[in-house]
Amino acid sequence: MKFISSVLLVATVIVLGACAESPTGRRQMLLFNNSEMSQMGATAFDQMKEKMTVSTNARTNRYVGCVAKAITAGLTGEWQGDWEVVVFEEDSANAFALPGKKIGVHTGILKVAKTSDQLATVLGHEVAHVLAHHSAERMSLQSVAGTGSQLIAVLLGDSAQKQTVMGLLGLGAQFGVVLPYGRAQESEADVVGLDLMAKSGFNPEASVQLWENMSAASQGQPPEFMSTHPSHATRISDLQKRMKKAKPLYEQAKSLGIRPNCSA
């Protein structure tokens, strides 16, 4: 038991020392630094480019690149500068951003994000995940959750109940920690991304239109409590509530002459 107490003490010190604050003021646990995450992001992106089909359509690449550049143009600090943007020939309505300033866009998303403002909603959301260190946060959570499970396994020893209890712990962790945590990140990326697109000169009202399109194109979502993403209805409602702040940012951007001209 002394060994377990020592491990728990060390784990507690690490967790407390890794506390940070997200862009919306939410407490975060970050066990991985920006340099480590950027290296992992760049490596993962290179692997994707090797395994997936990269689009050679000049018009599509120019269009997506234009929107991405507008979204990232005003970023500061370590996020400043050019981001690598790659369009993948994939039918899924998806896009992603990775630490290391990488953005990937599936061609399928262009069937749902039908305007540059709607595409800016998607890219703003994905870039917001990076700005808020969500990848590092999820990795930190999984790391600590894994350590916790190992410690409990040691406590249980070789008891006949070990597999049953560990199975229940997996289920409990999945529905009690990992999934709600994922929804918090998604909602935060919606908020940060909405402000980011508005500051970049894109109409924030398009965010609602995008998720209405997503809802229409969706073939059904699992119940919200079993999903890492908020329901479409929840997202739309939250975005509408945030619009009072986003619209002035959009108007300010226009007054400064920030008006992206990205045509598909």
Rank of each mutant, 00 (worst) to 15 (best):
2 K>G: 10
3 F>V: 15
4 I>T: 15
5 S>H: 14
10 V>W: 08
15 V>R: 14
16 L>M: 08
21 E>A: 15
22 S>C: 12
22 S>D: 15
22 S>W: 07
25 G>I: 06
27 R>H: 09
29 M>H: 03
32 F>D: 04
33 N>W: 09
36 E>L: 03
44 A>P: 07
45 F>A: 02
46 D>G: 14
49 K>Y: 05
50 E>K: 15
52 M>I: 03
63 Y>F: 15
76 T>C: 01
76 T>Q: 08
77 G>C: 01
85 V>A: 06
87 V>F: 00
88 F>P: 04
88 F>D: 11
89 E>D: 14
90 E>K: 15
91 D>W: 05
94 N>W: 01
95 A>L: 05
99 P>W: 00
100 G>K: 05
101 K>H: 07
104 G>R: 06
105 V>Y: 02
105 V>M: 00
107 T>L: 05
109 I>A: 04
111 K>G: 04
111 K>Y: 10
112 V>I: 12
113 A>V: 05
113 A>I: 02
113 A>W: 10
113 A>Q: 11
115 T>D: 04
116 S>C: 05
117 D>H: 09
118 Q>E: 12
118 Q>V: 00
119 L>S: 03
123 L>E: 00
128 A>M: 11
132 A>V: 08
132 A>S: 14
134 H>F: 00
137 E>Y: 09
144 V>T: 12
144 V>R: 13
147 T>W: 01
147 T>H: 03
149 S>T: 15
151 L>G: 01
153 A>L: 04
156 L>Y: 06
160 A>H: 01
160 A>Q: 08
161 Q>P: 11
162 K>T: 10
167 G>D: 10
168 L>G: 15
169 L>Q: 13
171 L>Q: 13
175 F>N: 15
177 V>K: 11
178 V>K: 07
180 P>D: 12
181 Y>L: 11
182 G>I: 11
183 R>E: 04
190 D>R: 03
190 D>Q: 07
195 D>G: 01
196 L>Y: 00
199 K>H: 04
199 K>R: 13
201 G>V: 04
208 V>H: 05
209 Q>S: 14
210 L>M: 12
213 N>K: 08
215 S>W: 06
219 Q>W: 01
221 Q>A: 13
221 Q>C: 08
224 E>Y: 08
225 F>S: 14
226 M>Y: 11
228 T>F: 06
238 D>Q: 03
239 L>M: 13
243 M>N: 06
245 K>Y: 01
247 K>Q: 10
248 P>W: 04
255 S>C: 02
257 G>E: 03
258 I>D: 01
259 R>Y: 10
264 A>S: 02
